[in-house]
Each structure stands twice: as C-alpha cells, then as structure tokens.
Write a protein that binds this DNA or RNA. Structure first.
Lengths: 166, 166
DNA sequence: GTCAGTGCAAACTTTTTGCAACTAC
DNA sequence: GTAGTTGCAAAAAGTTTGCACTGAC
C-alpha cells in the first residue's frame, strides 16, 4: 500500500468515527493522527507530545494529545503496546502480524518473520471474533544473555560444591 | 505441575539469582514472590502493594514491592505485560503459550486455544534466541462490537446519501 | 560488624481533570 | 448560537529516590 494512501485511509476512518459519534473534526486531532500515520514505527506519548508542542504551524497541548490518543484507540486507529518496558502507540494498519523476540535478560526486542507461523495464525478459527491483526510476543533469551546465564549457572554449581566441601 | 511445586521452584530460582549477584535473601522479597506465585492470574503493582501492606505478619512497603518486582524481572521470574490497557506482572512459568483475543471495541480479553498454531510456533526457528514462552495477542472485534460497527456503518452510508440528496 | 535492603516521605514522571476561552458545526 | 474541544495549570496516579534505621550474612 502507498504510504500516503494509508494516511488518507486513516483520516477517512477518523472522519467516519467522528461523524458516527457526533464528535468534531478538529485540526488538532487530524494533526496528531497525521504524525502517527506518517511515522513508520510506534511512538510514545512523550515523543508525540514533544513533537506536537514544537510544531510551529499548529501547537497541540499535552492534554489534547492524550485525549486524541484515547479517541484513536476507541476508533481502532491506534493501539497501546508495551515494547522494551515502554508504553507505545502503534498504528493498527501495520502489524497485521508482527513477531517480536523479547529477551528477558537485556530486555531488547527484535522483530522477525516466519511465513508458516503467519499462515497458520491466518487460518486460525476464532469463534465469535473477527480478527484484524495480531502480535506474537516470543519470550526467551538472546544468545548473549543465554551464554551469560550458562556461565553464571556453572559458577553457582561450583559455589555449591565448595560449600559442600566445607 | 503441582501448584506448590512451582512456588518452590520459583523460590529456588530467586535464591540462585540472589546468590549469584551477591544480593540478600530477605523475607520481604520472598513474601512478594510467594504472593505472585500463589496467584494464578497476573497482578498489578497496585494489587500487590495493597495486599502486601495489609498483610499482618509482615508488612511490605510500596517501595520494596517495586524494588522486588524489578529484581524479579531481572531474574526472569516475572514479566511486565499490558492487558486491557493495564500494566500487569505475570509469572514466567505460565504462558508457555497463551492466545488472547482482544476486542478493540469493548476492550474485553478472552483466551483461546489452537493446537496447530501452538505447534507451528513451537517449531519456529529463532536465530540466536532461546524461546521459553510466548503470547499471541489477536486484535479484532467480538461479535457484539462487530455487529454494532456494521450497524453504525450502515447509518453512516444513509447519512451520506441524505447529504448527497440535499 | 558491615553494608545491602527496608520503610517512610518527598520528589519525580506520567496521565487526568476542571475551567475559561475558543471554534466546528 | 450551542456545545464539544482546546490550552493551561492544578490534581491525581504511578514510580523512583534519599536517608536513617534495620537485619542478613
């Protein structure tokens, strides 16, 4: 999909949502949405807030950023996610499927792909539920942290043996 | 696995971690861990804090609860997760695989199972990463919210037609 | 005995709220 | 014109920090 296309689609979805709920289509809301949808990666409330207050065409206050985010969540335009222990907001049009590897050691998160998993999830039968997207969080240890753990475990075993000897 | 067994295993893991890092095995840390591991579902910092301050045998302060939680995260005993927009701490010994259906309309979360997806994820090749567990978050709409959306969309179409007529 | 860990309160960060001014409809 | 929305500042909620005291080793 075209980059610009998805932005326009998001705007349309917002307009529809606002009209349906008798809410107003303000410049501020559009500006916040535009920033999120012109950005590929997820953003934090802080990032957004900072950017929107620096913007010289239209400055949007912190309160309005939060207000908009919560409205966009209701409208299904963004979703709150936890990445590296940080709260972020991500576009719902991306991540029809994201696979994240989250290291429990250093907390680092990397993304990967696996077509077979992707296909299998797509074929999943969800009763009374219409799937629009998914995120697979895989927990574990990266090779560095795994090696470090093994080293520590070895050390622990030695300590135990030492104590036993005493 | 026995309910009591997993608690003891967690305690052991904590002891090992503390010893390895020259930290102290305090009653407070054990008490917090015990509460988490005697509970099946995830808990919020608030829940924990409230419970630990009411406990009459050993009262644990809010600061110590936070300190312990962060230590348990480092030790790989608990993990922070976002459920229904709320930050919770969950045991890492559960959720070797959880499939959550999250409704973007009402925010309700339900768990489901799918053996083929489960198997496919288990067979996934993760480079330089050792998997210990995973959570699949499926986003979408429950049947109620889906129906409600369709109704609204229909209403929107009618409005548009009305406007066009004018 | 030593020093990491605790409780408490204060500080700090993040999010929400109340209200007067503003503006989309 | 009306009522939803905004900005600002103050309040509330959530988390971290400083410090004197305590207790694990």
């Amino acid at each position: 999909m075209d980059k610009n296309d998805s932005l326009l689609q998001a705007r349309q979805k917002l307009m529809d949502y606002l009209r349906l709920n008798s809410l107003r289509n303000t410049q501020e809301r559009v500006a916040v949405l535009d920033y999120i949808y012109s950005n590929e990666s997820s953003v934090s409330a802080e990032d957004l807030s900072r950017h929107m207050s620096e913007e010289n065409r239209l400055r949007v206050s912190r309160a309005t950023v939060y207000n908009s985010l919560s409205l966009f969540e209701d409208a299904g335009l963004v979703r709150k996610v936890l990445v590296n222990g940080q709260l972020l907001y991500e576009r719902t049009d991306r991540n029809r499927g994201t696979i994240r590897l989250i290291c429990g050691g250093c907390g680092k998160t990397t993304e990967m792909n696996d077509d077979r998993v992707r296909r299998q999830i797509g074929e999943m039968r969800t009763r009374r539920f219409t799937m629009t997207g998914w995120t697979l969080n895989v927990y574990g240890l990266c090779s560095k942290c795994y090696a470090s753990l093994k080293r520590k475990q070895k050390k622990l075993m030695n300590n135990k043996t030492d104590i036993d000897k005493k």
